[in-house]
Computed example of a mutant assay.
Amino acid sequence: MISTPQFYIQVLDNMYEGVYFVDNNRRITYWNKSAEAISGYSSDDVLGQHCWNNILKHIDQCGHAHCRDSCPLACTLADGQTREVELYLHHKHGHRVPISLRVSPLRDEHGNICGAIEIFIDNSAKVAILERVEELEKMAMVDTLTKLPNRRYLETKLPHILSEYHENGFAVGVLFIDVDHFKNINDMYGHDVGDEVLKMVANTLAINSRASDIFCRWGGEEFVGIVHNVTEAQLEEIANRFRILVGTSSLDMGREEIKVTLSIGATISRGNDNSNSLLKRADQLMYHSKQTGRDRVTIKPQQNSFTKAKRPPKLKLQTMLG
């Protein structure tokens, strides 16, 4: 059997999982092709770098950074234990990617730890997303910039979803999402950079959602998410997870990183809701988030503050079908 180093490298490069090695100083010594595909970073970008340089910027679902004080690689190098954990890495294009990773120690011929190996897989429903995009493109229902379903698609789809909800009693959650201070991004960096920010946000929403859920670009810097079969508490948790993931994503501009936050309105469908009433309520809740400080989720504000937090008349939602 062939057992040259080149043979093993060829095997590793053809693995579905991302694989990389570090030495005892957490310096990256090997980076396979799948690691490049999942993260966007080539071997030229990372070889010789230390993982604690925050290349992948691993965070958990609460937004806690793991690269500095709770790095699985560092812990395994210290105690020799294998670890498995689910985190979110920072893609080279700025968005967050959910991953499952396993870290194991590497030992020399004397049994001493000489490094570690991390194997990770992409947890996002990429195949379902790509199939959905291809199908919708044929019907002109995809936003050309972000590749998310567009407003036309949601206006067509939501009445059917609500009809199914009324028949079966499944709860439907709606997230109305606005990118905070987006006009400042366009004014400071130009519309090309603004477009990249919108794609970063869209990718984070799409990649980290369930295959059954729908996120669309409503228009401008606004997005709408339809989340199936959730309670109000679950919807609030999901909304905050997206808020954290986008808030910890960044667009690399060379000497600086561009970050944005989200204001989100979240609501659960009610028995008498139609498409317009459901979206209007979510929109008003989103605007409440903006008026009360931005970078937050509003799902049930105080009534007196809710009546004040209405979108200016010139920005009201258009009447929808359904």
Results as ranks from 00 to 15, higher is better:
Thr4Val: 13
Pro5Gly: 10
Pro5Tyr: 07
Gln6Asp: 15
Phe7Gln: 13
Phe7Tyr: 15
Phe7Ile: 12
Tyr8Trp: 15
Ile9Thr: 15
Ile9Trp: 08
Ile9Asp: 13
Gln10Ala: 15
Asp13Gln: 14
Asp13Ala: 10
Asp13Met: 07
Asp13Gly: 11
Asn14Trp: 11
Asn14Gly: 14
Tyr16Asp: 13
Glu17Arg: 00
Gly18Asp: 11
Val19Lys: 06
Phe21Lys: 05
Phe21Val: 06
Asp23Thr: 14
Asp23Val: 11
Asn25Thr: 15
Arg26Asn: 07
Arg27Ser: 14
Arg27Gln: 15
Arg27Val: 15
Ile28Pro: 01
Thr29Trp: 03
Tyr30Leu: 10
Asn32Gly: 10
Asn32Thr: 14
Asn32Ile: 10
Lys33Cys: 13
Ser34Leu: 00
Ser34His: 02
Ala37Gln: 13
Ala37Glu: 14
Ile38Phe: 01
Ile38His: 04
Ile38Cys: 01
Ser39Pro: 08
Gly40Glu: 04
Tyr41Arg: 10
Ser42Asp: 05
Ser43Glu: 07
Asp44Met: 11
Asp44Tyr: 15
Asp45Gly: 05
Asp45Ile: 11
Asp45Lys: 08
Leu47Glu: 11
Gly48Ala: 09
Gly48Gln: 11
Gln49His: 15
Cys51Ser: 14
Trp52Ser: 04
Trp52Ala: 04
Trp52Asp: 10
Asn53Ala: 13
Asn53His: 15
Asn54Tyr: 04
Lys57Leu: 05
Lys57Ala: 10
Lys57Arg: 10
Lys57His: 13
Lys57Tyr: 04
His58Gly: 00
His58Thr: 03
Ile59Trp: 00
Ile59Val: 15
Asp60Met: 06
Asp60Phe: 05
Asp60Thr: 07
Gln61Ile: 14
Gly63Leu: 01
Gly63Tyr: 02
Gly63Lys: 06
His64Ala: 07
Ala65Asp: 00
Ala65Gly: 00
His66Phe: 06
Cys67Trp: 08
Cys67Phe: 05
Arg68His: 12
Arg68Val: 12
Arg68Asp: 09
Asp69Leu: 05
Asp69Glu: 08
Asp69His: 09
Ser70Met: 06
Cys71Thr: 03
Cys71Gly: 01
Leu73His: 03
Leu73Pro: 03
Leu73Asn: 06
Cys75Phe: 04
Cys75Thr: 09
Thr76Glu: 02
Leu77Glu: 09
Asp79Phe: 02
Asp79Ile: 08
Asp79Ser: 07
Gly80Asn: 07
Gln81Asn: 11
Arg83Ile: 04
Arg83Thr: 05
Val85Leu: 11
Glu86Trp: 02
Glu86Val: 09
Leu89Gly: 05
His90Gln: 11
His90Ala: 05
His91Ser: 04
His91Ile: 07
His91Arg: 02
Lys92Val: 09
His93Ala: 13
His93Lys: 15
His95Ala: 08
Arg96Glu: 03
Arg96Thr: 09
Arg96Tyr: 02
Val97Arg: 06
Pro98Leu: 03
